[in-house]
Design a protein around this nucleic acid. Structure first.
Length: 489
RNA sequence: GGACGGGUAGCUCAGUCGGUAGAGCAUCGGACUUUUAAUCCGGUGGCCGCGGGUUCGAAUCCCGCCCCGUUCACCA
């Protein structure tokens, strides 16, 4: 098949035409040409005269229906597709003959007029057609498209070229980021960029990727979160900042996790977690609604309503309600483990009190959190960067937001007491020495920053990929990442 | 890492009891000036994921491995 296409390539060159052109002056995008035509049609509806819009369009040819002395092709660009009519009489015999050298998948430029066919289809009637880029490999089947999941991910360009709805999904993802950025700008947050190469990985409980810098001859870590640098900016004098960017965690891969993913983190001085909860509610509701175009949507068969106010409950109330155990009543690890196991949650010997609570949350509570729900007041053991709750040293002022069972965000009143922060880091080091390789490292410079003084601050992290999953009704994170991580073949 | 499912033509998929490897689309040749999954006639196209075993004979049965998906474990 490739051989046939190479022969056509040679024929095109032989008649003096370049099969890999440099540019083409199109007058419209396909969607623009369609809109213009329909508008002209409406305007002419009273007069009754047939409408015709001159146009030069370019795109990939995705179908060809040839009838001897005439042919119909489908032309697709980023915005839409349109039918093209080639008639031997209109184009001239010589030009019509050159259509034989076209293949599905070629990029072509077509000049002519947009009209309706007898059957009512908006169609570009071609006066001239030139090949812009010869395609040497066949596109997947026109009807079913490409469905093999592995090929779809490994060769995303084929996926997009043969499944237009994939492009729609990614456009929505792009829109999510755009709308979110607009919201944050309007709310007075400044967008910043902080390092991705960290000498000490921090800001989240996760294993890092390690890399090496030759000039300084030292190992560096790909960031697991921008958190500690963003807080340094608050120390320095910024009041409201955010960053949207890639994080890397050396962890497992499944439908909700990719080793590299995109996070939005924001920090707001003089704010606490309850104030931020309200802002988070407004931000997510407004962003999601703007992208989906309404206050309700369906995710994986379940109807989700964005109507505010969203549900709010403490983590321990949620556990009491859904797991029917009062794990808050104890601070003893063994008792908590027994309680968790009594409701079928598996507990391993390395899990501390906090992780046991977290496991109960994941197994018994999270499956119920279909409508948007805030859980707040998390155990101190699993929140080493969050401020202690006023009046309860066992808890932190922290919340998570769940929508459609997906954890969409995590936030807290930021711990700004450097002495407390040091103790929390030391506890993490004890966990690490006990074998927890996800425990956080002690970052002396970060402590030094807190000693300089960070105003009261609330911070939030939102998983952009999961937000994209939500608005595109995608069951897997790989559907919203252009090139998801797969095993190298 | 465990369990389950999958890997056959460029793509989407059949393949019975172990007996010459199949269809549709794409592609090539032919017919056709209003089709839109165009239609009609004829052809080309295979490391049946990889390696080993059983057998006269393996896409098919057995063993090992690779890759993908789902799920559990793990994990912000």
């Amino acid at each position: 098949m490739r051989r046939h296409r190479l022969e056509k390539l040679e024929r095109i060159r032989a008649r003096g035409e370049e099969p890999f052109k440099f540019a083409f002056s199109r007058t419209h995008l396909i969607a623009e040409a369609r809109a213009l035509f329909e508008e002209a049609e409406r305007a002419a509806a009273n007069g009754g005269a047939p409408v015709e819009i001159p146009a030069a369009l370019a795109g990939r040819m995705t179908a060809m229906r040839s009838h001897g002395k005439s042919a119909f092709a489908d032309l697709r660009d980023e915005t839409d597709k349109i039918q093209v009519f080639f008639g031997c009489a209109q184009m001239g015999e010589a030009a019509y003959e050159t259509l034989k050298d076209l293949d599905l998948g070629d990029f072509i430029g077509v000049r002519g007029a947009v009209r309706r066919t007898k059957r009512g289809e908006i169609t570009l009637f071609a006066d001239a057609c030139e090949i812009l880029t010869k395609s040497l490999r066949p596109l997947p089947e026109k009807y079913h498209g490409l469905t093999d999941v592995e090929t779809r991910y490994r060769q995303r360009y084929l996926d997009m070229a043969s499944n237009p709805q994939v492009i729609t999904v990614f456009k929505k993802r792009i829109q999510v980021v755009g709308v979110l950025r607009e919201w944050l700008n309007a709310a007075g947050f400044l967008e910043v960029e902080t390092p991705m190469l960290h000498p000490i990985p921090g800001g989240a409980t996760a294993r890092p990727f390690i890399t090496h810098h030759n000039t300084y001859d030292r190992d560096l870590y790909l960031r697991v979160a921008p958190e500690l640098y963003l807080k340094r900016l608050i120390v320095g004098g910024f009041d409201k900042v955010f960053e949207i960017g890639r994080c890397f965690r050396n962890e497992g891969v499944d439908t909700r996790h990719n080793p590299e993913f995109t996070i939005m983190e924001l920090y707001e001085a003089y704010q606490d977690y309850m104030g931020l909860m309200k802002e988070t509610e407004d931000m997510l509701a407004e962003v999601i609604e703007a992208v989906i175009g309404g206050p309700t949507f369906t995710y994986q068969g379940e109807k989700i309503s964005l109507e505010r106010p969203w549900a709010r409950m403490t983590l321990h109330d949620a556990i009491r309600q859904y797991a029917d155990i009062d794990i808050e009543a104890t601070r003893d690890r063994a008792t908590a483990a027994a309680l968790a196991e009594s409701v079928g949650v598996e507990v391993t010997p390395t899990m501390g009190y906090g992780k046991i609570v977290d496991a109960v949350l994941a197994a018994k509570v999270q499956p119920h959190l279909v409508q948007p729900t805030f859980l707040y007041d998390y155990p101190i053991e699993i929140s080493p960067l969050a401020k202690k709750k006023r009046g309860n040293d066992a808890l932190t002022e922290r919340f998570q937001i769940f929508i459609a069972r997906l954890e969409m965000g995590n936030a807290f009143s930021e711990l700004n007491d450097p002495i407390d922060q040091r103790e929390r880091f030391l506890e993490q080091i004890r966990l690490r020495e006990a074998g927890d390789d996800e425990a956080q490292f002690l970052d002396e410079d970060f402590i030094a920053a807190l000693e300089v003084g960070m105003p009261p601050t609330a911070g939030l992290g939102v998983g952009i990929d999961r937000l994209a999953m939500l608005v595109t009704d995608s069951a897997s994170i790989r559907e919203v990442i252009f090139f998801p991580q797969l095993r190298v073949l």
